[in-house]
Amino acid sequence: MLTFEGVGYTQDAFSLQADFTVPIGARVAVIGPSGGGKSTLLNLVTGFLTPTQGRVLWAGFDLAGTAPGARPISILFQDNNLFPHLTVAQNVGLGLRADLRLTEAQRQQIETVLARVDLAGLGARKPAALSGGQMSRVALARMLLQAKPLVLLDEPFSALGPALRDEMLDLVADLMTETGATLLMVSHNPEDAKRITQSVVLVGDGVAHAPVETGEIFANPPAALRAYLG
């Protein structure tokens, strides 16, 4: 269970408040206008930002003081999710060991997850030799190997076309079901949220609201969401 316990973050004129919990295994969309604080909310969980008040807890354990990489979290950023100078297999292998000193069994594991995301045999390529969709799959394969219980997506598929994006979202949904991980996904697009999430956190006017069931929030949008959806 992910808990925002009276969390506040203030920098200059910007501020964000969050006070809610996300149950284990939930798939949650984070929606709201740009600059509203969606990425800030994610960064407070990952540890790239430190709350100015309150605590962020995972399974009752305060995350403060734990470095981003040591948190029970895998993250996919908007871009730069792969190192261009490393091969696909190396990029995926980073999910197992940051120093890439891999055993034979681990190499086998890499082959297996690459096959799972339909990239069998492409391990020796560099990212530059892949399509946008394939790059996303590599990042997802690494996420699988990391096997962390909380997955954060900061619009990693926003550069893909609609069909490819849907394909990636479906793959994410499948992987979440397989692993039982909890998902927090930032999105601009209500369709993305409807496609794979069960609830929505609306972020705007300095507040990240408690999650509301996805079908319900789009059927009866609150004023802030109506303004955003237009």
Partner: peptide, 10 residues
């Protein structure tokens, strides 16, 4: 930097 941080590459 963030990618490396998130993968505990220090």
């Amino acid at each position: 930097g963030r990618l490396a941080d998130s993968l505990q590459m220090t």
